[in-house]
Write a protein that binds this DNA or RNA. Structure first.
Lengths: 344, 344
DNA sequence: TTGAAAGCGCTAACAC
DNA sequence: GTGTTAGCGCTTTCAA
């Protein structure tokens, strides 16, 4: 293996000078620099990052650790968007991204700690899940670098990038009301999915109802874990109990797909239920271009989390203020209830 | 930071003994071992992997490098299944997985080389793309560890895990023929997508046609790059040229989605075209449960590639024989042409 | 079964 | 602008 000394020898300089060229090349005379670069080229020299990492106490790697089982994670489009956002930022910033989805949810938190304590990574991005508040405490006391994709404990003020879903559901509900709908279902996220649930989706929904002077009917709201199956199941039940339903808002796109499948299986016509999708994913726009949708800034969330962890690592900061992104709403389906009935 | 010496001191042994406990613990007296373990626990000692890696010349990391742009990669369900398969195997085998999707396709190959030469990873899993044959040569001459997800040059006999799509398309075509279809379209993969295209899909298709004594009509075959857009576009053209079409086979599920969307936009009824999906992905089964499908062992491919690179790394082998997996076919839609026409 | 010493390849301090 | 020295935290001889 060719080392920095081989290069130094060939270029007739010291190892340190080669190191300078590799890192802080402005401190080297141009002529020397050229000689070194030639030697590097000639020997096809590649610095051993393990040695540099050991010396610098810096691995230039970021971990992305998710506690939900790989069959869910790699198939959940929102999670992949977050991962993509993180990947794009982090790799542009010169870090490698380690993706870890431990088999058992419980292990994920330990895995995150291990990766960090081992110096495998300079910092981790973590998904909220049960028990994460304890882990965060340990990260804090040990002064380890982390960022969470959501709020993990009641008073968390720093090191998170979360999404506030209030605006999206508020606007969606308001929009449906403006079209004349007054029996509006909500396929909400399950409060058990994250440790500290903000109940933001529900808040936006009830706010809009209240403004319109319409009673909030709790049984119009069902909960699920973002999956196709939950969307299918919960909508089926919801509709059986409320056949007078004319519109539904979904917490996620996979749930939206499940809902749509359920309407087909129940023999409903596309116009019978006005559906608002949950995430505005590219695939959803392609499959169901007419659907209005709440937008979910998953990519931006991952990107911001990457940016945050990189800045924490690079600037040696332990804590930075948390960031809250917002959902929005895009109207595509403009049928009013009256038009819809006429259409049939 | 607590080091192996702190542990050694507390346990009243040498650093080497601690190292033995950490790695080859059977060579240590049980009593000593316990003392060491206690000390480790007490000090919350975590071995510095950078130091170990440097000494062992082994990083225990595997790279997964894809040359197609992160917006495609993280949204392509097949690629994610491959990634998931690799992740699951590799992490169970005690390796970390580095995922790298360089911004420019051209960079990906250099990135793979860099990661490996830098000792960032012990080996990489690579996607075929233009120019990869040159890169492979360099991997080989430099004795670096790699596995490719497909065949990269004409005579490649080792270090690949590929999928032969002949069986799936053969069976799908045969099945459609048995239902009475004789104008069968094929939305094939584009020959430009990979460097060395096996043309397996087309082969299965033409084989079945030949057996049935039906003429192969080249204009019934269109090509696309696995995307929704290509499925939409190519099917639209295909159908305009061949309105007598009664069935289509797709090279991928995203193309299948595009095709289905196109049929809707053209005002076709679901029964007008008998569609065979390309991958049998879970989402496709959920969205369109009636579709027959070619199966694509993406997860297994990623898994096997993980297994192969791990064995290459662990056993110090440079080359291992390539593996060929096969597509299959699952019939779900059993309408024959006659029934279909009656149904209308 | 255990320990002492050397060194993996790099970079930070500190010279010059 | 450049070189010398020391040492990051482990593991690997080799000896005891």
């Amino acid at each position: 293996m060719t080392t920095i000394y081989d290069v130094a020898k060939l270029a007739r300089v010291s190892a340190k000078t080669v190191s300078r060229v590799l890192n802080e090349s402005h401190l080297v005379a141009e002529e020397t620099r050229q000689r070194v670069l030639e030697a590097i080229e000639k020997l096809d020299y590649h610095p051993n990052v393990m040695a540099a990492s050991l010396k610098r106490n810096r691995s230039n790697m970021i971990g992305f650790v998710v506690p939900y089982g790989s069959d869910f994670v790699f198939q959940d489009p929102n999670m992949m968007e977050q991962l993509r956002g993180t990947h794009d930022y982090v790799s542009a910033a010169g870090f490698e991204l380690i993706v870890s989805v431990p088999r058992h949810k419980k292990d994920a938190l330990q895995e995150a700690l291990r990766l960090t304590k081992n110096r495998n990574v300079d910092g981790v991005i973590l998904y909220p899940s049960y028990g994460i508040d304890q882990i965060i405490k340990e990260f804090q006391t040990k002064n380890l670098r982390y960022v969470t994709l959501g709020i993990c404990y009641e008073q968390q003020k720093s090191n998170f990038v979360e999404v506030d879903q209030t605006p999206g559901s508020y606007l969606a509900t308001k929009y449906l009301l403006s079209l004349g709908h007054c029996r509006i279902g909500l396929l909400n996220k399950s409060p058990s999915f994250f440790m500290y649930n903000r109940d933001d989706l529900l808040r936006g929904y009830t706010m809009a109802l209240k403004e319109a002077g319409i009673d909030y009917v709790p049984s119009l709201v069902r909960e699920g874990d973002f999956t196709f199956e939950d969307g299918y199941e919960q909508f089926t039940r919801l509709y059986k109990e409320h056949p007078d339903l004319t519109a539904v808002i979904c917490a996620s796109d996979p749930m939206t797909y499940g809902l749509i499948r359920a309407t087909v299986d129940m023999g409903l016509e596309p116009d019978d239920i006005h559906v608002v999708a949950g995430d505005n994913l590219p695939l959803t726009q392609k499959l169901f271009p007419h659907l209005s949708s709440i937008t979910n800034p998953s990519y931006a969330q991952g990107w911001e989390a990457g940016k945050m962890i990189v800045s924490i690592v690079n600037e040696g900061r332990g804590e930075v203020p948390g960031i809250t992104l917002s959902t929005e709403f895009i109207a595509r389906d403009t049928r009013s209830v009256v038009n819809s009935k006429e259409g049939n």
